[in-house]
């Protein structure tokens, strides 16, 4: 992977949380390289650390989180070295924006859409107050929302989940960021609304050349949108590759099982792969490869040493001793 086209590079990121039971290492050395203009999927099960990775990039972690090691290089600059004030002024909104799973809790119920978006426009646009409405309408139209003039004067409770999520995207577009982090944006939506949302994102991708880190547990959504995918397991990236390559040729045993446990048009329950055991609790993670207790190909070394993240080719990296 050429260094020049990397917009974001996460290097050996370690994040832990202080909890009542002790320190939980949510991320244990995460490496990611996001190319300019790409849709990069981050997939994994509950608690694998995908949301923590997203929130670390934009530095919106909870108070009990500690970033213990690593770098987050955005356009070559380490975001972890910036002050909170610099993050707020220069990075959040201007450069990197994030949308969350539940649009209902991301919008303020006591302000109408126009005033919430006007705040964004005031902060991120050098525009006269008279032109706010035009900018807001334009942003709302770009996510294919109908009847934007009346929509602007509505309150969040008057909109459906799908519309609220599109308003969130419009708000994010109004900041005009280079990088969008989308954390399970369609999980709370119905399939028909999700399908409309996917279409809008696909069109925006072509129009705006946006770079997106797309966090989800849904492989089907990844296959609709992403060019690259990283698979996470128990706080580590286990495999990164081009999206098509991962679907065709998953190398890590976990990635392989995950792909085969997804409900698709297979009609037979017996064909679905099972992964024995459960996701380990990170308060006391397994030694060596964290997947080894559930892996049917594990050998002695897997329980002893952490597998290095090695390149199979320029575009395909995997952390597994059996390869």
């Amino acid at each position: 992977m050429g260094v020049t086209d990397e917009l974001l590079k996460v290097d050996g990121l370690v994040v832990s949380f202080a909890t009542e039971e002790g320190e939980v290492e949510a991320l244990d050395g995460v490496d990611l390289a996001i190319r300019e203009g790409s849709f990069h999927g981050l997939i994994g099960e509950t608690g694998c650390g995908k949301s923590v990775t997203g929130r670390s990039i934009i530095r919106l972690l909870d108070n009990n989180a500690m970033i213990k090691a690593g770098k987050i290089l955005y356009k070559g600059e380490d975001l972890l070295k910036l002050s909170e004030r610099q993050m707020e002024r220069r990075i959040r909104g201007n450069e990197i924006a994030m949308i969350f799973q539940d649009p209902s809790s991301s919008l303020d119920p006591v302000f109408n859409i126009r005033s919430q978006m006007a705040e964004v426009v005031r902060m991120y646009h050098n525009a006269r107050r008279e032109s706010y409405d035009a900018i807001i309408a334009e942003a709302l139209r770009s996510v294919r929302l109908p009847d934007v003039e009346s929509l602007m004067h509505k309150y969040p409770h008057q909109l459906s989940g799908g519309m609220k999520q599109r308003v969130m995207i419009a708000m994010m577009l109004a900041c005009n960021p280079h990088l969008l982090i989308a954390d399970e944006p369609t999980t709370a939506l119905d399939v028909s609304i999700q399908a409309q949302f996917i279409k809008v994102l696909r069109e925006l991708k072509e129009e705006l050349q946006m770079t997106v880190v797309y966090i989800t547990h849904d492989l089907a959504v990844i296959s609709e949108l992403c060019d690259h995918v990283s698979v996470m397991y128990a706080g580590r990236i286990v495999e990164t590759s081009a999206m098509r390559e991962l679907f065709k040729n998953p190398v890590h045993p976990y990635a392989h099982k995950l792909l085969n446990s997804v409900l698709g048009v297979q009609t037979n329950l017996d064909d679905l792969a099972e992964i024995p055991g459960t996701v380990p609790r990170l308060i006391n993670p397994p030694k060596g490869c964290r997947f080894h207790p559930r892996c049917d190909q594990a050998t002695e070394i897997c329980g002893r040493e952490r597998p290095p993240f090695v390149a199979l080719d320029d575009d395909h990296h995997v952390a597994c001793h059996t390869r």
């Binding site: 519309m163 399939v191 028909s192 999700q194 279409k199 679907f247 997804v262």
Partner: peptide
């Protein structure tokens, strides 16, 4: 509804949607 369900297969992208509106 069936058309709106994404397939976990990159070779089968969502087609034209029939189900508009809410």
């Amino acid at each position: 509804l069936l058309q709106a369900v994404p397939e976990p297969d990159p070779d089968k992208p969502l087609g034209e949607l029939q189900l508009g509106g809410e």
